[in-house]
Structures are given as structure tokens and as C-alpha cells.
Write a protein that binds this DNA or RNA. Structure first.
Length: 827
RNA sequence: GCGGAAGUGGCGGAAUUGGUAGACGCGUAAGCCUCAGGAGUUUAUGGUCUCUUAGACCGUGUGGGUUCGAGUCCCACCUUCCGCACCA
């Protein structure tokens, strides 16, 4: 009697069974080769979305495959549970962030369990629990001790809607990455992590990451933004002060016709102090300082500025040049001041034109004949120096070296390196984050909370209204405390940490999630790390992945680990697209995984999501596509049902003895399939082609099964192939395969069975089709024994009547033979 | 503007090392089965053309090139998407 494919019952049955027997639980075993498969943990926003399903499905196939290959696999899961959405929900819906978050987690955990992923749930990590954030605080205190964490007053990006500071990385196109409000500048005391100390290493470490996608490395490289140049000091004749600039083109310094300061530059105010137009200039400066972001957004076009009336001395020429304050000079980069060379820099050129400042050419194109250069454009390339006294006639690169040396000898400059990356501001004026464990004492200053007092608990009772300032600030019971050093009255720090702090080390915590003395256990981390495969969206290419690398290097320097790079291999999956746009609530094109599971089952969803495109490319959702996946599982189900009788009897056929042609072909096909599927999963992560190969094997079996059932040998091969088919599909659609496996009479879980091995002897076909081309065009083909002799192949090709017709009277110039592939006859 | 990725049937995609372009799936069409079908099943399915049991020509964004042979390599260009963006 044939049963229907009842996915609801089957999926429930096996999920319960797997959980009961704890088959995905992992532990250190020095006897076995470990494999740490990690997917980026989610923010518990309420429900899982397709992008996450895809992410976890990819990871699950790899994990299950590695388990079947006999590796000791760590496949953990957790929650990036702190952060603003919880607080926003509290303000708009009146739910406490903690309740909201924990409810979301329990709902999403169920959703994920319904997808049948092979997570070791005993290692689940949740960053909003004190047992996790305590270690954030511990790490912060260590950083504070080593000077890596520090406090400074600085201009920060302030989102007026979220009422908080944003890291530079969270400002997208001058707008808040979350709510899209225009970001403002505000001066505040903030906590920073000195990631710039590691800038060079984060860059050079890329050499160890040859298994990362090139574009991610390039994005990080641009973000770190190293440039080589020189710092040069211009003295001010009537002042003891001087102005330092950074330039990558010291070779153009003889063409510097003015200096330009950023409006926020400390000297900007000072230089105009005794000007007759003081008020007017002052006004201009403040306007341009406050609207820094705005001015840049409009930016691109108009460059504005004011003349301070002061002069500076070009140390190379000894000439006095005017000092301007200009809107296009950024305080955050370099020294906040530049030497302007209008002839060789487009921006300086535009500015000079607008204010009729002199333009002096000092670089000449080495090749071109000249004339058409200049006038209305700049020459920004390297070339030959002119009008540069002793350096005239030298090529740029050579001049740069010599001029740096000259500046150094003269004591007014030095060769230098500049990075675009800036220290990481981690302070957030928010409630739902890790409290920064610091106490402010009037006499002792900021003091770290003693380790034994950790964690600094986030108070549960709090009022959240969404008003300016941190909610913790208004919570007297939290703020009021005593100084651990002098016991005097003191105030607790009310800033909380950026949640990227949490995600910078959660993968360490997974290796020993209940460790109580340190953030993680050294031995456990030593066994499991580095992560063998890290899978996640490209949207984290810069932020999360740079921070996590930074933490790992800091841990290494602190002796917490020996790992250098945490993620030697990264798989950056593409976005999920529907109707030509990224799936998102705002676009209204979201497909809810729950609905799909209810209608087609988890296996069908997993199969389709992996089948539609390779992981690194974008995945285009198609409502009809899922039906295809579902139908395939139904067909497979029926096929196995129809042949279950084969599994009831012992096979009595001697393998390979007098096996008939059809059976032999299926056997070959089966072995070829094992080879291809294994390689696709293991080497290329191209799960889509792995699935299509499995489907091809299915089609082959389906087509030949009736005939195969006629003989004992045929039955035997058929049975073997069905088993193999089930094993190969099991990482993709684990529930149905587990059920079929059981029906075939196996007593152990399918994941505990070995991944099938292929015999190279069978993975090669004995007969091959050889293509015959004339002048590269396909004109015929013939079958032959594999490795047929070249002469024979050519002879056979020429013997084909069609080929004869083509050749006719013409003369054969030459014949090219590619072994087992083709014969090309050149006429 | 700079940097990156990608352009292949009606659609998602395959072709891994320069060697049969379009695997696999979706969709579509026709047939069978069926009380019925948004189920199952069989067949067909890049385009144009012709002397239609067969065959010719064209065909992987565009234009060139290398090669016996190019989706794949080289040069130029076009389009789309992504990242950065007054970075001195």
C-alpha cells in the first residue's frame, strides 16, 4: 500500500526525534578533525525572513555534509538581542524591550526549529542576558586598562530621530542607516576603541584571507583607506603657530598657491580673531561647522570659502601664500588642512577659479606634446617636474622620495602614512544595550567598575518615552553610586555599547557558552577556532567583519587566544529579491517562510531556496519555483514507495558478475553523481548544481526502473542507487530523506551514515561521444571506446558520410584531435 | 567621479581547464488519465528559413581581435546592480 507524502507529519516526527536524541550536540574530540560552520546570528526582530532561511539552509547543508564525512562539526546558533528596535517597540507599543526581545526569540526559535536545521541548541547564546553582556563589560575593562578604550570629546554623528550617536559606519549617505533621518553634528564626550592601532594589521591580514571573496577584501581595503604621503608644516610669519597639512603629492608643492583649513579647524577661529571682518567670517564658520553634513550633501558642486587675510610660508619655496578657510576641507581626514595646488587637483582648481587665486603648473605630462593640457582642466597624473627649482626635470615618483627626505632634513616635514579608518565610537545614549562599566567620580575621574562587581545589570524598571538623552540617565537608582577607588559619591556611566561590540566575539563564546571565569575557555576556543566557514550577507562586509577581526587580534595580543584571523573562509551570500527589488517590509514584497512551510513543508522550501541560484549570487524568489521543489519531493517519495519491495529482500546478486548494460549504466551514473555532488558541495559551494545533478540521477532511475526490475542484477543496482540518491539529498531535504531511509529498513539516523564514496573506476564512462567539427563547426559525432587511439578517431571521423559530403573535393589541411572529446577537420 | 560584480531562451539558471551552448527546474503547448483539476503522466519547447523521417543559417549586451575552435582569453564600448564618495 502506498502512502502519500505527508510532509507535516514527517517533519514533525523527525524534528522531535532529533531533538530527543540530541544528535547535533557537539563536544571537543581531539581524535577527530573539527569543522566549525557558522552563520551570522540574527537580530530577533520578530519573525525570520527569507534571507536568513537561505543563509541557514546553506550552512545546514555544509554542516550535515561534513558530519556525514566524519568530521566533528560545531554548528551553533544565537541571538544578537540588544539594540534599538526593541526600544523603539517599547516606545511605540508599550512593551518592555526585554519582554519584546525574549518573546521574539522564542517565536523565532520555533520557526527555525521547524526548518530542521542541525544546530546544537545547547550552545545557544543570547547577548541580552547578563551572562553574556557581563563579558562585554569584562572585555571593555581590559581594553580600558590597556589603553585601547578611551574617552574623548568629539564631533559625533547624531541622529535626531533615534536620539543617539551613530558610528561613521552607520551613516549612509549622510543619513541614519536605520531611520533615514538626516544626521547632524554634535560635540560630545564619547567612548572610543582604538581600532586605528590595528589599521595596518587589519590591512596586511588580508593576505591570509585568500578564501574571501575579492570584492569584500576590496571594500575593507577602501574602508581602511591607507594612503602614503607626507606631513608638511607651513609656518605662519606673524605667529608662533604653524599649520600642518597632509599630502600624497609632495611633488606638486611648488605649485601650492594657498592653504585651506577646514571650518572646524582649531586655527580657523584664531586666524580671524583680529580681522576687520571678524563677525562676518565668524558667522560663515559657524554656519559651515554645524551644517557640516548638509554642506557636503549639497557639496559636490559649490565650494565656498573665506580668506583669513593671513599668510603662511611654503617651506620649499619660502614664498608667502594666503590661508583660506574652505568648505571642502574635511576636519576628520588628515590634519584638517590642505595645501592647495590648483594646477594639479580638480577641487583646488575649482576653488581657485571661483576666488581668482593663482594657478601654477609644476608637473608636465611626460608623454603628451602639451598645449591642450591646462586651461580648463587639471593634470592630476604623475609626470615631470617643472618650475620646481632643484627638483625640476625629475619624474614625480623620484621627486616624491627626494622631497620627503629634503623636508625631513629641513625639519618641516616627514614621509607618512594616513588611514581613512577612524577610532570606533561605541557610546550609545540608549537603554537596550550593554552598560559601559565605568563610574565617574569627581575626584578620581572615570574609574572602571571592579571585575568582581560585574555585571553591571541593566535595570529592568525603566521609563522609556523616546525623549532626548539616555533613559538610564534619569534612573537615579542606577546612576547614583560610590567610587570604587575613594568611596566618595559618584555617578555611573549611562552610555551603553554599540551592539557591534557583542557580535565582535560571539563566535568565541559559542565554543564554551557556559564558561564562568572568562569570556571563553582557552582550550575550547583553541580546539574549534578558527571558524572553517563563515556564511552571511554582504551587508556586513565592512562593519561586522572588520570589528570581529579587530577583536580577535586584540584577544590574541592579550593572550586570550592564539587565533589570528577568525574567519579564514567567508561565503558572502547574495540578497533575496522579489519583483526586481530586495525583499523588505517597506517594498511590501515579503514572502513569509511560515506560509511556505505550512503549504509545502520545510524540505521543499530548503530545496527550492538552494536550487534557484548559487549562494554568492542573488536569489530571486518565484512563487512557481517552490512548486517545482515540492513536486520533485513528491515524485521522489512515490518512486521510493514503488520500489520499497526491493529493500525487503536480501540482494543475492553477485556484484559485477555478468551485469547487464542498463544496470551497468545506472551504476556508472550513480558514481558520477556522487562525485559531482560531493565536489559541488565541498569545493564550490554550488548547491544549485548539486541539486540538479541529484535530479538527473532521479530522472535516470525513473526512466530505467521498469526494465531494471526485470533482472536480479538490475534490482540490486536499482536498490543501491535509490539509497545513494537518498543519502545525497539528505543534507538538502533532511526530513523526507530520514523517513525514506527508515522505510528502506535502516535503523540509524541518516546523518549518522557515511557520505557515499565513489569509485573512480565507475565514475568514468567507458564509451564516449566524440564530436566531429569542420572548421570549428559541429557536423557530426560518433561513439567510441574511451581513450581510442588518435589515428582511429580521425579515421572514424573522416569515414562519416556526412563529413564526406562536406569535404567533397576540398583538401583537408589539418585535423585536430582532443582526446575523448572532438575531432576538428580544417579545410 | 572612483572601485567592484554582472549581462546566456518567455523566466531562474548550467556549461568547473578555450572544445557538443542552453544541463536542471519553472513556464508554455498538445496528448493520456480523471466526475473534476492549480493532482499525476507522456511528448515538444533558442530564433529564422528550406526541398520538413532531414537539413541550412543565425545565436551567450555591442564592436573589434587572438585561435583549428571563444559564453569562456585580449582591446574598446553600452547597460544594470552594489560599495565608496570633496579622503588632499
Amino acid at each position: 500500500m502506498k502512502e502519500d507524502y505527508n510532509f507535516r507529519q514527517i517533519e514533525k516526527k523527525w524534528q522531535e526525534s532529533w531533538e530527543k536524541d540530541e544528535i547535533f550536540k557537539s563536544s571537543e574530540d581531539p581524535q577527530k578533525i573539527k569543522y566549525y560552520c557558522l552563520e551570522m546570528y540574527p537580530y530577533p526582530s520578530g519573525r525570520i525572513h527569507m534571507g536568513q532561511v537561505r543563509n541557514y539552509a546553506i550552512g545546514d547543508v555544509i554542516s550535515r555534509f561534513k558530519v556525514m564525512k566524519g568530521l566533528n562539526v560545531l554548528h551553533p546558533f544565537g541571538w544578537d538581542a540588544l539594540g534599538m528596535p526593541a526600544e523603539n517597540a517599547a516606545i511605540t507599543k508599550g512593551v518592555h524591550p526585554q519582554n519584546w526581545t525574549l518573546d521574539n526569540i522564542s517565536y523565532m526559535r520555533d520557526q527555525i526549529k521547524r526548518l530542521g536545521f542541525s544546530y546544537d541548541w545547547s550552545r545557544e547564546v543570547n547577548t541580552c542576558l547578563p551572562e553574556y553582556y557581563k563579558w562585554n563589560q569584562w572585555i571593555f575593562l581590559k581594553m580600558l586598562e590597556s589603553g585601547l578604550a578611551y574617552r574623548k570629546k568629539s564631533w559625533v554623528n547624531w541622529c535626531p530621530k533615534c536620539q543617539t550617536v551613530l558610528a561613521n559606519e552607520q551613516v549612509v549617505g549622510e543619513r541614519c542607516w536605520r531611520c533615514d533621518s538626516l544626521v547632524k553634528q554634535k560635540e560630545m564626550e564619547q567612548w572610543f576603541l582604538k581600532i586605528t592601532d590595528y589599521a595596518e594589521e587589519l590591512l596586511s591580514g588580508h593576505e591570509l584571507l585568500e578564501k574571501w571573496p575579492e570584492h569584500v577584501l576590496i571594500m575593507q581595503k577602501n574602508w581602511i583607506g591607507k594612503s602614503t604621503g607626507a606631513h608638511i608644516t607651513f609656518s605662519l610669519p606673524d605667529s608662533s603657530k604653524s599649520i600642518e597639512v597632509f599630502t600624497t603629492r609632495i611633488d606638486t608643492i611648488y605649485g601650492a598657491t594657498f592653504l585651506a583649513l577646514s571650518p572646524e579647524h582649531p586655527l580657523s577661529q584664531e586666524l580671524i580673531a583680529d580681522s576687520v571682518q571678524k563677525e562676518k567670517l565668524q558667522e560663515w564658520i559657524s554656519e559651515n561647522t554645524e551644517n557640516l553634513r548638509l554642506r557636503r550633501e549639497v557639496g559636490e558642486g559649490e565650494k565656498e570659502g573665506v580668506d583669513t587675510g593671513k599668510k603662511a610660508i611654503n617651506p620649499f619655496t619660502g614664498e608667502e601664500i594666503p590661508v583660506w578657510i574652505s568648505s571642502y576641507v574635511l576636519m576628520e581626514y588628515g590634519t584638517g588642512a590642505i595645501m592647495a595646488v590648483p594646477a594639479h587637483d580638480q577641487r583646488d582648481f575649482e576653488f581657485a577659479k571661483k576666488y581668482s587665486l593663482p594657478i601654477k603648473e609644476v608637473i608636465f605630462p611626460e608623454k603628451t606634446s602639451l598645449t591642450e593640457v591646462m586651461d580648463d582642466e587639471t593634470f592630476e597624473e604623475y609626470g615631470m617636474l617643472v618650475n620646481s627649482d632643484p627638483f625640476s626635470g625629475k619624474p614625480s615618483l623620484e621627486a616624491i622620495e627626494e622631497m620627503c627626505q629634503y623636508a625631513e632634513e629641513g625639519g618641516f616635514g616627514r614621509k607618512s602614512m594616513l588611514y581613512r579608518i577612524r577610532d570606533w565610537g561605541i557610546s550609545r545614549q540608549r537603554y537596550w544595550g550593554t552598560p559601559i562599566p565605568v563610574i565617574h567620580c569627581k575626584s578620581c575621574g572615570p574609574v572602571g567598575v571592579p571585575y568582581e562587581d560585574l555585571p553591571v545589570y541593566l535595570p529592568y524598571d525603566i521609563e522609556l518615552r523616546g525623549e532626548e538623552g539616555s533613559p538610564l540617565e534619569k534612573e537615579e537608582s542606577f546612576v547614583k553610586t560610590t567610587c570604587p577607588r575613594c568611596q566618595g559619591e559618584a555617578k555611573r556611566e549611562t552610555d551603553t555599547m554599540d551592539t557591534f561590540f557583542d557580535s565582535s566575539w560571539y563566535f568565541f563564546r559559542y565554543t564554551s557558552p557556559r564558561e564562568g571565569k572568562l569570556p571563553f575557555n582557552f582550550q575550547a576556543a583553541d580546539y574549534w577556532l578558527p571558524v572553517d566557514l563563515y556564511i552571511g550577507g554582504v551587508e556586513h562586509a565592512i562593519l561586522h567583519l572588520i570589528y570581529a577581526r579587530f577583536f580577535c587580534k586584540y584577544f590574541r595580543d592579550s593572550g586570550l587566544t592564539v587565533v589570528d584571523e577568525p574567519f579564514p573562509q567567508l561565503l558572502a551570500q547574495g540578497m533575496v529579491i522579489k519583483d526586481g527589488a530586495k525583499m523588505s517590509k517597506s517594498k511590501g514584497n515579503v514572502v513569509d517562510p511560515d506560509d511556505i512551510i505550512a503549504k509545502y513543508g520545510a524540505d521543499a522550501l530548503r530545496l527550492f531556496i538552494l536550487f534557484a541560484s548559487p549562494p554568492e549570487k542573488e536569489f530571486i524568489w518565484n512563487d512557481e519555483g517552490i512548486e517545482g521543489g515540492f513536486r520533485f519531493l513528491n515524485r521522489l517519495w512515490m518512486l521510493v514507495q514503488e520500489n520499497l519491495d526491493l529493500f525487503k529482500e536480501e540482494s543475492r546478486y553477485q556484484e559485477d558478475v555478468g551485469i547487464e548494460e542498463k544496470a551497468r549504466l545506472l551504476k556508472i551514473r550513480t558514481h558520477q553523481t556522487i562525485k559531482k555532488v560531493s565536489e559541488d558541495i565541498e569545493k564550490r559551494y554550488h548547491l544549485n548544481t548539486a541539486i540538479s545533478t541529484i535530479m538527473e540521477l532521479y530522472n535516470h532511475i525513473k526512466r530505467e526502473k521498469d526494465e531494471l526490475r526485470q533482472s536480479e542484477g538490475g534490482k540490486d543496482v536499482l536498490k543501491k542507487s535509490l539509497e545513494t540518491l537518498t543519502l545525497l539529498l539528505s543534507p538538502f531535504a533532511p526530513h523526507i530523506c530520514e523517513e525514506l531511509w527508515e522505510k528502506m529498513g535502516h535503523k540509524t539516523y541518516i546523518i549518522k551514515s557515511s557520505w557515499p564514496a565513489f569509485d573512480p573506476k565507475f565514475a568514468l564512462e567507458e564509451r564516449v561521444t566524440i564530436v566531429v567539427q569542420i572548421n570549428g563547426k559541429l557536423r557530426g559525432k560518433f561513439e567510441a571506446e574511451r581513450d581510442i587511439a588518435e589515428d582511429q578517431a580521425k579515421e572514424k571521423a573522416l569515414g562519416l558520410s556526412r563529413i564526406q559530403n562536406f569535404i567533397g573535393e576540398k583538401k583537408v589541411k589539418k585535423i585536430i584531435y582532443i582526446k575523448n572529446k572532438l575531432v576538428n577537420i580544417v579545410l
